[in-house]
Computed example of a mutant assay.
Amino acid sequence: MDKIMLNGLMFYGYHGLFPEENKLGQRFTVDLVLKCDLSLAGRSDQMTDSIDYGQVYEVAKSVVEGEAKNLIEAVAEEIAQKMFRTFASLEAITIKVDKPGPPIPGYYQSAAVEIERERHYAE
């Protein structure tokens, strides 16, 4: 299946279990792999036959910068559901939500989740 990949989308959100996360917020990074048939767009060279990357960014932004959630798992799931509602040609999606430096003990770069969803799951 064809893929559109958007990497390192950065947003500022207020997701987390701890009050300081909800109050102060932090940066989140999102990677997306959208699976769809791009053959018509490849032949026509028309944006109307593909998925608009800018619109994809805005959908992800509306979730990550929207209502605070406890878990990044919930952030990823809402992004998936909203993408399927927005883009009729989207057949499957992989979403990685990365949370740099969450407030838990230890030394590491980030915590992240990655989910994969198919359209039939979303309906």
Rank of each mutant, 00 (worst) to 15 (best):
L71D: 03
E114N: 10
V97E: 00
H15G: 04
I72Y: 01
S89P: 08
H120Y: 10
P19A: 12
L34D: 03
E65T: 08
V56D: 00
Y57M: 10
K23V: 09
D98N: 13
K61D: 04
T29G: 09
K23E: 12
F87C: 00
A88P: 02
V64P: 02
K23C: 09
V75L: 02
T86W: 01
I115P: 04
M10W: 14
E58V: 08
G101E: 15
V75H: 01
L32G: 05
Y14D: 07
I104T: 11
K96Y: 04
G13N: 06
H120P: 13
T48D: 14
E58I: 06
L90M: 03
R117P: 03
P100D: 05
V97G: 00
N7C: 09
Q26T: 12
D49N: 13
L34M: 15
Y108P: 02
R85N: 10
E65P: 05
L17R: 05
E73W: 05
F87P: 00
R27D: 03
V63N: 00
V30E: 01
T86I: 02
M83I: 03
Y107M: 13
E78D: 12
V63K: 00
T94R: 10
I104F: 13
D37M: 11
A111G: 10
I51P: 01
A122Y: 04
Q26G: 15
T48Q: 14
Q81F: 07
S50E: 07
Q81P: 05
F11Y: 05
G54A: 14
V63A: 01
L24V: 11
E73G: 04
K82P: 02
Y14W: 15
S110I: 04
A60W: 00
L9T: 02
N22W: 08
N22H: 11
G54F: 08
Q109F: 09
G25N: 06
L90R: 00
E78N: 11
R85H: 11
T48N: 11
I115R: 05
G25Q: 05
G101C: 13
V56T: 03
G54L: 08
